[in-house]
């Protein structure tokens, strides 16, 4: 075991341990090796995904000119965006509710909250199909509203996940902090915003990531709640690969990954700068 040189400053610097680094490295390799292979094969000059036939960028060209794929991608990102926001609000509230209060039927509410997590996708998808058909949900609305049904369904299966993660986070909260804030004259809202919310933040971030991922990835429920004008990326991909995985699908995924990396990197860069400039004068 490595001798800790600066115990007062970094006693738990697990990331400095080579064994830890190796482990994280292996996990990352496990996660990324197939994806890297996928990216490489998006440049494969063959309609099939299997044998290397030479380098080409023609599938990127095809993707860029595949209006349907682009539309599907746009729809999926839009749905994921709104789903994440609504799920965060609902999931956060639900977590606080269950964590903070005692109320009649609490066990039933808790059970009901857990259900969207256990109900098989196909079962929920069919339930939503019947539901929207019965209430006569209009399927010919203009664009962002046409995604409403899908978004509602996504929020329903995403926000319990958010609630679950946030709640496990809240378990470590020391309620005296909130009490102290209130004793010092903070209103309920101020105490929530300035004391509880910061504590919930990692849980909320994790929950948001989960919700975004699940929404972006969902096929079954989306399929059953989509109307004639609302194709999403997974539905498109699912239909495409039924006719075998073409490099076009790989190219589209590669673009999606690259786009995400760029967007997140920019966000992280600015956040880091803000943190630094904020620290600067202090």
């Amino acid at each position: 075991m490595m001798r800790r040189l600066r115990p007062a400053i970094a006693p738990l610097d697990y990331t400095r341990r080579w064994s830890m680094r190796l482990w994280v490295g292996l996990v990352m390799f496990f996660l990324y090796a197939p994806l890297v292979a996928l990216m490489v094969f998006s440049f494969n000059d063959s309609r099939r995904n299997i044998v290397w036939r030479g380098f080409t960028t023609k599938y990127y060209d095809k993707v860029m000119h595949n209006d349907m794929l682009m539309e599907a991608l746009g729809n999926s990102l839009t749905i994921a965006f709104f789903t994440t926001i609504i799920s965060l609000v609902l999931g956060g509230l639900a977590a606080v509710m269950l964590w903070r209060f005692r109320f009649p039927w609490k066990a039933a509410v808790e059970g009901a909250m857990a259900l969207p997590i256990v109900v098989p996708e196909i079962c929920f998808g069919v339930a939503m199909l019947i539901f929207f058909a019965q209430i006569g949900w209009p399927t010919d609305m203009p664009w962002p509203f046409s995604l409403g049904a899908i978004t509602i369904a996504h929020v329903t299966f995403c926000f319990p996940f958010v609630a679950m993660v946030v709640r496990s986070r809240l378990a470590s909260f020391n309620r005296e902090e909130e009490e102290a804030a209130k004793d010092l004259g903070a209103s309920e809202w101020q105490a929530f915003r300035d004391v509880l919310l910061p504590h919930m933040k990692p849980g909320l971030i994790a929950g948001a990531l989960l919700a975004f991922t699940m929404s972006l990835d969902d096929f079954v429920i989306t399929f059953f709640t989509s109307g004639p004008n609302t194709i999403t990326f997974p539905v498109k991909v699912y239909s495409m690969v039924r006719f075998s995985v073409t490099p076009e699908v790989n190219a589209a995924s590669t673009l999606l990954i690259v786009l995400t990396v760029i967007m997140t990197s920019v966000a992280l860069y600015f956040q880091n700068r803000m943190v630094q400039s904020g620290k600067g004068p202090a």
């Binding site: 199909l129 399929f223 699912y238 239909s239």
Partner: peptide, 13 residues
């Protein structure tokens, strides 16, 4: 154009 992948899906939908 919208897409389905199997007849079962078409029917269920």
């Amino acid at each position: 154009m919208s897409l389905f992948a199997t007849n079962d899906e078409l029917f269920a939908k």
